[in-house]
């Protein structure tokens, strides 16, 4: 699998993501700079990683969504390429209109960095097919603005078209509508989620609950 990770000014979980991808796919991802205009030829997966792009100034992800690379990411998604946005990357995807809705400030009005439990609602996608539907798993979360919100019509469509990939199980940590932790694009090729499965791929550091997401991705492109 050829994976590329986009680095924006203020991105800070790009190395975590690179380590997780290399560990599971055996292949180092390409690091792209936000000013690049094109993706490397043959890119299968583009990752928008976590962090504080542009310091979260203006709105989380809003300025990054205007970066030169985002046109190429959009074209890649439109071609059916895979796009994974984690935390700040999820916020960018909503700001760029690649996923609907918005991430508001946590209901507690505090930055929260803790483990959360998620339930897998779709286990038939390139990102999740190594999970079982209904399976729960733990991942780190670390965000101040992860409270998923959208209008009633959008919510109805997301639920009706079964585009909610991951939902918080048990306590809803940030006030997200319908406890939504991650959503998919209609073609199931774009996934945005707030928690960090990339920090959960190593038994010595954070546990291995996040591994199935990366092994799913790796297997989706085993031949590539």
């Amino acid at each position: 699998m050829k994976a590329s990770i986009v680095v924006f000014p203020g991105t800070n979980r790009e190395r975590d993501m690179a380590i997780a991808l290399e560990r599971t796919t055996g292949r180092k991802p390409t690091m792209l700079w936000h000013r690049d205009a094109e993706l490397p030829a043959g890119t299968d997966l583009v990752v928008l990683p976590g962090g504080f792009s542009y310091g979260d100034y203006l709105r989380c992800g809003a300025m990054a969504a205007q970066s030169p690379i985002m046109a190429a990411v959009r074209a890649h998604a439109e071609r059916g390429g895979l796009v994974l946005g984690v935390c700040n990357g999820f916020q960018m995807l909503t700001e760029a209109g690649l996923l609907p809705g918005a991430l508001l400030q946590n209901a507690s009005l505090r930055f929260l960095a803790m483990n959360c439990t998620m339930r897998v609602e779709r286990a038939d996608t390139a990102f999740t097919h190594h999970f079982q539907r209904g399976q729960t798993f733990q991942a780190t979360m670390a965000h101040g603005d992860g409270n998923y919100f959208c209008d009633a019509e959008t919510l109805k469509r997301l639920e009706g078209e079964n585009l909610v990939a991951l939902r918080y199980e048990g306590e809803n940590p940030n006030g997200s509508l319908n406890a939504i932790a991650g959503i998919l694009s209609p073609n199931l090729r774009v996934l945005g989620l707030m928690p960090h499965p990339e920090n959960c791929v190593d038994p010595l550091v954070g546990g291995t609950d996040g591994l199935p997401m990366f092994t799913s991705l790796a297997e989706s492109f085993a031949a590539a």
Binding site: D16, G50, L112, A113, M114, T140, A142, N199, D202, G206
Partner: peptide, 14 residues
């Protein structure tokens, strides 16, 4: 207190 500090970023906190 801890729950407001990101202790995991960098992916190396054992």
């Amino acid at each position: 207190i801890w729950d407001q500090y990101d202790a995991q970023v960098g992916g190396q906190t054992a």
